[in-house]
Design a protein around this nucleic acid. Sequence first.
DNA 1: ACGCTTGCGTTCATTCTGTTCACCCCTGCG
DNA 2: CGCAGGGGTGAACAGAATGAACGCAAGCGT
Lengths: 226, 226
Amino acid sequence: MSDIRVLVVEDEPLLAEAHKAYTERVPGFVVVGVAHTARDAMAALRQRGGTDVDLVLLDFRLPDLHGLDVCRALRAAGSSVDVLAVTSARDLAVVRTAVSLGVTHYLLKPFTFAAFRDKLERYAEYRRQALADGEVAAQHEVDRMFATLRGATRHTLPKGLDEHTLHTVLAALGDGGLSATEVGQRTGISRVTARRYLEYLVSVDRAVRAPRYGTPGRPEMEYRPT
Amino acid sequence: MSDIRVLVVEDEPLLAEAHKAYTERVPGFVVVGVAHTARDAMAALRQRGGTDVDLVLLDFRLPDLHGLDVCRALRAAGSSVDVLAVTSARDLAVVRTAVSLGVTHYLLKPFTFAAFRDKLERYAEYRRQALADGEVAAQHEVDRMFATLRGATRHTLPKGLDEHTLHTVLAALGDGGLSATEVGQRTGISRVTARRYLEYLVSVDRAVRAPRYGTPGRPEMEYRPT
DNA sequence: ACGCTTGCGTTCATTCTGTTCACCCCTGCG
DNA sequence: CGCAGGGGTGAACAGAATGAACGCAAGCGT
């Protein structure tokens, strides 16, 4: 199976580099181009005849056109290249339209590498199933393809940590500025456990810690989500 | 929440009637039109201004144009109406293209009413989440929308589960707040079996689980029906 | 400096989870 | 009527997640 060829479309040069680096950290993917505007992106896709790019990492906020318009133009031109929306647009109307235009996934900026990799790996798996030139025999095969692409996110937590507790802690943390003890009080969880989860969040860059000075005694650690 | 308005596109008159009847058997859906050709379908959609139809049940094998071309024309015209592909085309290439054009689902003919209803109900649930004019706060909310639309299907009880036991467990659960052990005690079923059924209920969103904190030792899981 | 104060970070007992596997019951078949 | 097979159940077990206890770390005050 040859690599999946990706075109990165992102106007901010630093982010474009970051997305490129992220993509190439995922086995099976290779970046074949970077575009900074909608015009460049469409030119790159046209030039390549629509067969040399498998997946477009498309920022929706571009200087010249909106990403949704790029999608529409692609579809109108008969291209069936796959699109992964990478954007900070949180409007449900935009999500709806993106879905109707067939984006494979919709990744909110800023994102962690884990979230990014999850989307790419799902796409790779979908592609493995869909790329064959054969035919599907039964409904459940089609269902499985759709589910592979869009099914619930799998997230692997370290041992000793529980997913539900993690959500509870995250919710209690709110906008941050809380110590482990305070999070514990808010959730009914013990300080020890609250700390366990807060430290996990720090370890995966979903929170930061800072000491609280000014009072006697050892300073308290204050956690804040990122 | 008003009904979801459906346009049925199917050239075979008998099948068109059948699809219409099926659709109206699903609560929350209403058929607002039937078209027998691609031309008719596009005319109907244009006439209605693109805002009076929420979902198109689209046969791909039409006398004048292929369903895929209808999709492409819709997208090119800026319509973001949702499309449920209903077709006997089993080519993976067709499925791939359909996905890239944003079809919500792909239903192989011939199909059972159960399979059909599953697709419509998933779409309704997706719509409920996506229709608000608000904004999404986090990645997992978008993920849930995609998963609702495309997640794995489960219409029958998995092996190893018995319907009668399921009802017993559901009845014992009452308003919730019970652990697997407690449900077991109330029903005379073992904890293991009670848990088996409770977890099934969670997996199909008919119950939620939350840990009970405060005491030493691994927390108990508390189940609550939704 | 040096103690004082306060909470951090860790260890470990505790309790319940999740899984495995043997058993039992039912059904179909020779 | 005996036997094989499969689906559903529960006893036993390995280990997962929590919180109490405790020693030590880290600022503050004199």
